[in-house]
C-alpha cells in the first residue's frame, strides 16, 4: 500500500528513474514568480523541492510556496528545517500542508542562522533532522502527535531526508543514513555531486549495508554557469567536494556564453553517470537562480518523456490525492 500516494512515491515504487527539480521561493509577498517558474518544471520533472529559507535568508514559506506550486501544476516536495520552528509549529505546518494537498516532505536541519540575512536571530533547533523524520512518521503511521495525543486525519506524507556523501566523518555518514532510514525516511536527497569517485565510494558503502534497498536514493546535481560558482563552493561551502577536472574545464573558457554551455555539459555528464550507478533511484537538479535550465538538462540527459504513474486501485485516498498531486 502506498504511504502517501504522491507522484514521486508511485514512480519510485514502480522502479522509474525519477527527476526532481528545485526552486527557491521569492523574497517577496508575491506568488507570480512561483507560478512562472512552474513552467520550467511541468512535464520535465516528477516533483520539485520548495526550499525553506535556504541559506537562512527569508523567503516565502515553503508551505505556502508548495501550495502555489500545486496550483501551478507541479508536485511539490516541501522542505522543512529545524532552524525556524519548534515541534509545535512544525506539526501544525505539516497538518496544514497535507490539507492543502502537499504529499512530500524533506526533513532538514537547516543552514545556521548566522550565514543568512538575519544573523542576529535565534536558531530554534528544538529537534534535529532525524527526530523530525521520526515525528512525521509517527504522525503518518500512528496517527499521533509527538506528545502521543491522537489525531483524526493523519498527514500521509512521503518522507525525505538529506545525506551528504562528501562531508567528514566519511565513514559515519553511512551509519547516519541508516539512522535516518530507521527513523522513517522513504527517500534521500544528497548534496550535489561534483566528485564522482567520492560519491561512488559512498554508494559502495551504502550497497554493502544494503541500504539502497530500504530507501530511494536521489542524487543531487547542480548546473553552474561559471567557474566562479565552483570555486566559491570549493572554498566557502563546507562539506562540498569539487573535482579539479570541472574547475579546469570551466577555467579555460573565457566567453560567458560558452562557459554556460560547458556548465550544462558537465551537469548532463554527471546525470548520465549517476543514472548508471547501481542503487541511485533518481536525480535532483538544483540550479541556484537558474531554474530555466532544467528542461534542457532533463532532455539532454535522455530522461524525457517523464513517466506517468500508473493508478493503483488498492489503498485509500488514491482518488483524492491524484486530483491535485499527479497532474503532469
Amino acid at each position: 500500500m502506498l504511504k502517501s500516494g504522491s507522484n514521486l512515491e508511485k514512480l519510485l515504487r514502480a522502479g522509474h528513474f525519477v527527476v526532481c527539480g528545485e526552486m527557491g521561493p521569492p523574497q517577496a509577498a508575491d506568488s507570480a514568480s512561483i507560478l512562472k517558474k512552474c513552467g520550467y518544471f511541468k512535464g520535465y520533472v516528477d516533483a520539485v523541492n520548495l526550499t525553506d529559507n535556504q541559506t537562512a535568508i527569508v523567503r516565502m514559506s515553503s508551505v505556502m510556496s508548495s501550495y502555489f506550486a500545486l496550483q501551478g501544476g507541479v508536485e511539490p516536495i516541501m522542505q522543512m528545517t529545524c532552524r525556524d520552528r519548534n515541534r509545535l509549529a512544525m506539526q501544525s505546518d505539516i497538518l496544514g500542508a497535507y490539507a492543502a494537498g502537499i504529499r512530500n516532505i524533506l526533513c532538514l536541519t537547516g543552514d545556521y542562522q548566522t550565514f543568512g540575512n538575519h544573523p542576529d536571530a535565534r536558531g530554534v533547533f528544538d529537534l534535529d533532522s532525524t527526530q523530525l523524520v521520526q515525528m512525521v512518521k509517527k504522525m503518518r503511521d500512528e496517527k499521533k502527535f509527538l506528545c502521543g495525543d491522537e489525531m483524526k486525519q493523519e498527514p500521509r506524507m512521503f518522507i525525505g531526508a538529506a545525506a551528504n556523501p562528501f562531508a567528514e566523518p566519511f565513514e559515519f555518514r553511512v551509519m547516519n543514513l541508516a539512522k535516518k532510514i530507521e527513523a522513517g525516511a522513504d527517500f534521500i536527497q544528497t548534496q550535489p555531486v561534483f566528485d564522482i569517485p567520492r560519491f561512488e565510494k559512498w554508494m559502495n558503502a551504502v550497497r554493502e549495508e544494503g541500504l539502497e534497498k530500504e530507501v530511494h536514493i536521489i542524487a543531487g546535481v547542480m548546473p553552474v554557469r561559471s567557474v566562479k560558482a565552483l570555486l566559491y563552493m570549493k572554498d566557502s561551502v563546507p562539506g562540498m567536494s569539487i573535482a579539479d577536472e570541472y574547475i579546469n574545464r570551466l577555467e579555460q573558457i573565457k566567453d560567458k556564453e560558452a562557459a554556460m554551455e560547458e556548465g550544462v555539459k558537465i551537469a548532463v555528464e554527471i546525470m548520465t553517470r549517476l543514472k548508471e550507478t547501481p542503487g541511485v533511484a533518481g536525480v535532483h537538479i538544483m540550479p541556484v537562480m537558474w531554474e530555466s535550465v532544467t528542461p534542457r538538462l532533463v532532455e539532454e540527459a535522455g530522461l524525457l518523456p517523464r513517466p506517468v504513474a500508473a493508478e493503483e486501485t488498492e489503498g485509500k485516498e488514491q482518488g483524492t490525492m491524484c486530483d491535485v498531486g499527479c497532474r503532469m
Binding site: C82, R83, T109, G110, D111, Y112, G123, F125, D128, S129, T130, Q131, A162, N164, A167, E168, P169, F172, M175, N176, K179, A183, Q191, P238, G239
Partner: peptide, 11 residues
C-alpha cells in the same frame, strides 16, 4: 545546532 543523532552536512 545541538545535533544528537549525527552531524549536519557542514563538517
Amino acid at each position: 545546532k545541538e545535533m544528537r543523532n549525527g552531524p549536519c552536512g557542514g563538517t
